[in-house]
Design a protein around this nucleic acid. Structure first.
Length: 391
RNA sequence: GGGCUCGUGGUGUAGCGGUUAACAUGUCGCCCUGUCGAGGCGAAGAUCGCCGGUUCGAAUCCGGUCGGGCCCG
C-alpha cells in the first residue's frame, strides 16, 4: 500500500471559464483532471485486460458496488486483495455507492410522480431494500452497508450512499429524497471514521430539478468533510437536457470555492463533457463509450456534433471500406484494422469486434480529455470547444 | 429409362386444407448518459417454381410441367 493518500491540486485555470486542470493523487497513482472515468460494472471493462485499458490512456475506472455484493460478494473480493488485487488493476479506482441501482433496477412505476413506493425496490429512511436482479432474494442496503462494502472493495475513490430520483418527480418527494441523502451522508462520514477508513469519499448532491433544493444540497455538502463532491440524478433520469446543466449553474458556484474535486455522475456525450468542464467539473463517468462500442458505434471527431461524434460500423456501407475506423486516430484498432474488417466482425458477432471497438472508443475519450487538458493549460479551451462543437 | 425427394421474402428455413403465410439472418431507420445490456424497438420485403384440377376454401391434396438433389438400371 502506497503511503501517499488523497490530495487534489489545481494546476491551471482557464481565464474565461471555470475550466481547470488538476491532479488527484491516490494510493494507486495520479489522475489527471478533467478525467473521463469509464464504467467497469462487474469488475471489468467488458472484454479488455487491465493492460489494454491502460494503453487506451485511461487512468481510473469505476466498479459497481451493488454488482459486487451479489457477484462475487464483497468478502470474496476482499480475500482477493480488494478490487485492485482481484482485477489486477494497479491504478486508481472508484466505486459507486449502490444507490443508483434503486433507480436503474426499479420499475419505472408510480414512484415517478408520487410519494409512494410501490416497487420491487423499496426505499425507506433507513435505506433501500433491493430485490436481487439474479435470484430475487431481498437484501437491505443503507449508508452503513454501502461504506462497509466499499471499504472492503478498497477503491481509492468512493461514493456516499444516496437516493437517485426519477423524473418527472414531485417536489415534495425530491425534497424528501434529498433530506434522506443528507442524513445518509452524515452516517457515511461516521461509519468511515469508525472504520478508520482512508478512502476518498465523495458526497453526492441531490435535489432533482429544483433550484432551491439543489442549492440547499450543495450548501450542505460544501460544509461537510467530504474529500470530493459528485452531482447526481441528472443525466439519466429523463430530465430535460436544459435542466441537466442548470443544475450545475445552481450548485457549482457553491461547491467550487471549496477547492475539492467535483464529479458529474453519468455524464458522457462529447458535447456534455465540454459544457460541464466549462462550468467547473473535474471528472465524469459514463457507459457511453463502452456500451455503444458493443453495439458497433465508433467515435470519431469527423462524424461531427450532429451525429454525436460517432457512426455505426455495422451498416452495410462499410462492408468493403479499407480505411481505418478513424483516420486521425492512433489507437491499436485504427492503426491495425479497417472499417471493412470491423464491419465483418460485428456482422458475425465475433468477440474481437467488441474488443476493438471498445479499445478505440476508450482511446477516443482519453485522447479527448488529454486534448482538453492541454487546451486549458494553453488558454485555448474555448477555441477547442468551438472547433469541436461547430455545426 | 424407372423410382424417391425438394422447390415459400436477398439468403436459410417453418407451416403441410381454413383468420392479414411464421422464424432466423440480411437490408433500412430509431434508441442507449452513476451498465439488467457481447443490445432494444420499428419498417420494408414473398401473389408459397409454373400450368391445370379437386374443394365453400390450397403454400398445403391430385395431375402435368420446369428446375435442383439422391437412388436403381
Amino acid at each position: 500500500m502506497a503511503s501517499n493518500y488523497f490530495s487534489f491540486k489545481i494546476l491551471s485555470r482557464d481565464k474565461k471559464t471555470k475550466a481547470k486542470t488538476g491532479v488527484i493523487n491516490t494510493p494507486h497513482g495520479k489522475i489527471n483532471t478533467p478525467a473521463f472515468v469509464p464504467v467497469g460494472t462487474a469488475a471489468t471493462i467488458k472484454s479488455l485486460t487491465p493492460e489494454e485499458i491502460k494503453n487506451c490512456g485511461i487512468e481510473v475506472f469505476i466498479v459497481n458496488t451493488y454488482h459486487m455484493i451479489f457477484r462475487p460478494g464483497v468478502e470474496t473480493v476482499k480475500k482477493g486483495d480488494g478490487l485492485h488485487g482481484f482485477m489486477n488493476w494497479k491504478f486508481p479506482l472508484m466505486t459507486d455507492s449502490g444507490g443508483f441501482q434503486a433507480f436503474s433496477l426499479g420499475e419505472y412505476g408510480p414512484r415517478n410522480v408520487s410519494d409512494k413506493s410501490e416497487n420491487m425496490v423499496k426505499i425507506t429512511d433507513q435505506g433501500i431494500e433491493f430485490k436481487s436482479a439474479w435470484d430475487g432474494k431481498k437484501i437491505f442496503f443503507g449508508p452503513h452497508e454501502s461504506i462497509l462494502a466499499q471499504h472492503k472493495l478498497g477503491a481509492d475513490l468512493i461514493m456516499a450512499f444516496d437516493e437517485c430520483t426519477f423524473y418527472p418527480i414531485k417536489k415534495s418527494y425530491a425534497k424528501r429524497a434529498m433530506q434522506r441523502t443528507h442524513d445518509w451522508a452524515k452516517t457515511c462520514l461516521q461509519v468511515k471514521k469508525q472504520l478508520n477508513n482512508k478512502q476518498t469519499l465523495y458526497g453526492i448532491i441531490q435535489g432533482s430539478v429544483f433550484e432551491d433544493l439543489r442549492r440547499n444540497s450543495a450548501n450542505f455538502f460544501a460544509g461537510k468533510p467530504f474529500e470530493g463532491f459528485a452531482v447526481g440524478s441528472v443525466a439519466n433520469s429523463r430530465e430535460p437536457r436544459k435542466k441537466v446543466f442548470q443544475v450545475l449553474d445552481w450548485t457549482l458556484p457553491i461547491l467550487l470555492p471549496v477547492n475539492k474535486p467535483i464529479h458529474f455522475l453519468g455524464i458522457g456525450e462529447v458535447e456534455d463533457i465540454f459544457i460541464a468542464i466549462e462550468k467547473g467539473i473535474d471528472s465524469f463517468d459514463c457507459v457511453i463509450p463502452t456500451r455503444l462500442a458493443r453495439m458497433g458505434w465508433i467515435f470519431t471527431k469527423s462524424a461531427g456534433l450532429k451525429n454525436k461524434f460517432r457512426f455505426d460500423i455495422t451498416k452495410s456501407r462499410y462492408h468493403s471500406l479499407k480505411s481505418p475506423p478513424d483516420r486521425s486516430c492512433r489507437c491499436y484498432t485504427c492503426t491495425n484494422f479497417t472499417k471493412s474488417y470491423l464491419n465483418h466482425l460485428f456482422r458475425c458477432r465475433e468477440l474481437l469486434g467488441y474488443r476493438l471497438a471498445t479499445i478505440h472508443n476508450l482511446y477516443f475519450y482519453a485522447n479527448l480529455m488529454s486534448q482538453i487538458r492541454t487546451a486549458i493549460e494553453n488558454g485555448e479551451f474555448l477555441k477547442l470547444k468551438q472547433e469541436w462543437l461547430k455545426v
